[in-house]
Simulated assay, not measured.
Amino acid sequence: MKLFIDGDGSPVKEETIALAQMYHLPVVIVTSIDHYTTKEYPEFVTFVYVDKGADSADYRIVGLTHPGDILVTQDYGLASLVLSKEVRVLHQLGTEYTLETIETLLEQRYFSAKLRKAGQRTKGPKAFTLEDRMRFKTSLETIIIEQVGERP
């Protein structure tokens, strides 16, 4: 089992890495070459850099993930692609995407895009809070425990 992070703009990289270290799990951060970093990370964290392009990271993540892996992303489209591979998918706000909920989320995204295209304004995301960060950590740890079967 590996933890994957859709790395472009993810605010929960550090929380994911900290939990992965506790549970001795590898982390793969997939991100655009535009976000190349020289920051030092632990050995169990690897980066996969992809070319610029709207869906380059998404396609790479789809190709790299396997059943039992966990993906952290806020991208509904990407979530829908890997759910069918039996990958657990968690939003940065701590909500787990499921086969039962993803269709509704994709429909909401479609209608919002349609409204924006027609010139109407839609709400953007709220500011990421400490409570959001804590909810994410709790949800991720719950999923990890369900996958590995125990606490360290």
Score class of each variant (00 low, 15 high):
residue 42 P to V: 00
residue 65 T to F: 12
residue 3 L to S: 10
residue 150 E to P: 03
residue 141 E to D: 08
residue 128 F to K: 02
residue 46 T to W: 00
residue 142 T to K: 15
residue 144 I to P: 07
residue 108 Q to C: 04
residue 90 L to Q: 04
residue 124 G to Q: 15
residue 3 L to R: 06
residue 136 F to A: 05
residue 133 R to T: 05
residue 123 K to I: 04
residue 63 G to M: 10
residue 58 D to F: 01
residue 117 K to Y: 09
residue 118 A to I: 02
residue 129 T to C: 01
residue 125 P to E: 04
residue 55 D to Y: 09
residue 74 Q to A: 14
residue 133 R to D: 08
residue 35 H to K: 11
residue 94 G to I: 12
residue 136 F to H: 00
residue 69 D to K: 01
residue 56 S to R: 08
residue 122 T to S: 08
residue 37 T to I: 01
residue 138 T to M: 06
residue 60 R to K: 15
residue 2 K to V: 07
residue 62 V to I: 15
residue 62 V to Q: 12
residue 126 K to F: 03
residue 119 G to I: 11
residue 117 K to A: 13
residue 89 V to T: 00
residue 68 G to I: 12
residue 63 G to K: 12
residue 142 T to C: 09
residue 146 E to A: 15
residue 133 R to S: 08
residue 108 Q to A: 14
residue 146 E to G: 07
residue 97 Y to R: 07
residue 16 T to I: 06
residue 97 Y to A: 11
residue 128 F to T: 03
residue 95 T to H: 15
residue 20 A to P: 05
residue 53 G to T: 09
residue 37 T to Q: 01
residue 17 I to G: 03
residue 31 T to E: 09
residue 100 E to Q: 13
residue 146 E to Q: 15
residue 22 M to N: 08
residue 142 T to G: 10
residue 82 V to P: 01
residue 150 E to H: 15
residue 91 H to F: 07
residue 66 H to G: 04
residue 18 A to L: 14
residue 69 D to M: 04
residue 25 L to G: 08
residue 36 Y to K: 14
residue 71 L to F: 02
residue 51 D to H: 13
residue 150 E to N: 10
residue 133 R to F: 06
residue 79 A to D: 06
residue 55 D to S: 11
residue 11 P to V: 11
residue 149 G to R: 11
residue 44 F to G: 02
residue 41 Y to A: 05
residue 2 K to Q: 11
residue 6 D to Y: 00
residue 3 L to D: 08
residue 111 F to R: 11
residue 114 K to Y: 10
residue 133 R to N: 03
residue 47 F to I: 00
residue 114 K to V: 14
residue 23 Y to W: 09
residue 124 G to W: 13
residue 89 V to F: 02
residue 39 K to P: 00
residue 71 L to Y: 01
residue 24 H to A: 11
residue 101 T to A: 06
residue 139 S to I: 00
residue 62 V to G: 06
residue 1 M to A: 13
residue 125 P to T: 07
residue 47 F to S: 02
residue 3 L to H: 11
residue 18 A to P: 02
residue 52 K to Q: 14
residue 1 M to P: 15
residue 12 V to W: 00
residue 85 K to Q: 14
residue 52 K to Y: 11
residue 80 S to A: 15
residue 88 R to V: 01
residue 143 I to W: 06
residue 63 G to T: 09
residue 5 I to D: 01
residue 24 H to L: 13
residue 141 E to H: 03
residue 148 V to L: 15
residue 1 M to K: 12
residue 123 K to Y: 09
residue 76 Y to D: 04
residue 85 K to N: 08
residue 38 T to D: 09
residue 15 E to Q: 15
residue 52 K to C: 02
residue 11 P to F: 06
residue 138 T to Q: 14
residue 88 R to H: 12
residue 6 D to S: 01
residue 55 D to L: 03
residue 34 D to S: 12
